[in-house]
């Protein structure tokens, strides 16, 4: 199977700090890939480089077989590669519906058609009852959900979620996990950035672990959780024997 999204030798420096060091991996169509790593491992930088918010220093990004390295974020969204943000970014003074309409306008030139699509998506993510509430008045969990809805309304082929679950309570996490599963069933390829292992392990088909900018593991969740390098990265060397 050819990969929908391929990262090859991606490297990014900030001054003397090496945020991503020669990172390579692929994501198959319809897969849920977990991107794990302790805080500061370079996950968000990698996301920014893949989705056109930062130019990589070296390396290539290929999407659907096309080299898209250096394309702008808005162009990549049109190509079908869309992301959400670690710190939630909704349009605060617009209603939930207007937020999602703006996403839907990417594929629907007419506002009336975009509204219909936006209402469908709000229904899908369970925010239909909150359509007319200003985004700034929604709860944190609802705003995270709204951001996913806005991204979904662009009809992406691949959706990159940057810590979509952090800051949610256990019930909200369960709902978010169910939503991600439904999205994949709908044919969307998903990359999840998380530093909470418990969320990713049962959900992901495959996991890539970053540490200090390098990919130190790329395997199934079960294999990764037994990997000494991963345990060392997360817990420290003294835990390897007991694992």
């Amino acid at each position: 199977m050819t990969a929908l999204l391929e990262i090859e030798g991606l490297t990014k420096h900030f001054g003397g700090v090496l945020a991503n060091d020669n990172v390579s991996f692929g994501v198959a169509e319809g897969e849920i890939l977990g991107l794990l790593g302790p805080n500061g491992a370079g996950k968000t930088t990698l996301f920014n480089c893949i989705t056109g918010f930062l130019p990589p220093d070296r390396g290539r990004v290929r999407f659907a077989g096309v080299d898209v390295t250096g394309r702008s974020a808005s162009r990549l969204a049109r190509d079908g590669l869309v992301r959400t943000f670690q710190i939630v970014r909704v349009f605060p003074d617009l209603s939930a519906l207007e937020n999602v309409v703006i996403g839907a306008l990417l594929r629907h030139g007419r506002v009336s058609a975009a509204r219909r699509r936006a209402l469908e998506v709000l229904e899908d993510v369970g925010l239909a009852a909150r359509s007319n509430v200003r985004a700034r008045d929604l709860t944190t969990a609802e705003r995270k959900r709204l951001e996913v809805a806005r991204a979904l309304a662009t009809d992406p082929r691949a959706l990159l979620l940057d810590e979509a679950m952090s800051g949610l309570n256990p019930r909200e996490v369960a709902e978010a996990v169910a939503l991600v599963r439904r999205l994949r069933e709908g044919g969307v390829t998903i990359v999840l950035v998380e530093h909470v292992l418990e969320v990713v392990m049962p959900l992901a088909d495959r996991v890539v672990v970053l540490q200090e900018g390098r990919a130190i593991a790329d395997a199934t969740p079960a294999a990764v959780s037994r990997d000494p390098a991963v345990i060392e990265a997360y817990l420290g060397p003294q835990f390897i024997e007991r694992a």
Partner: peptide, 18 residues
């Protein structure tokens, strides 16, 4: 809609193709 999106958050606007 796009102009208001840009006013509210240009980065988020880019992320949905504006």
């Amino acid at each position: 809609y796009y102009l208001r999106a840009i006013r509210e958050d240009p980065t988020a606007s880019r992320s949905v193709g504006v």
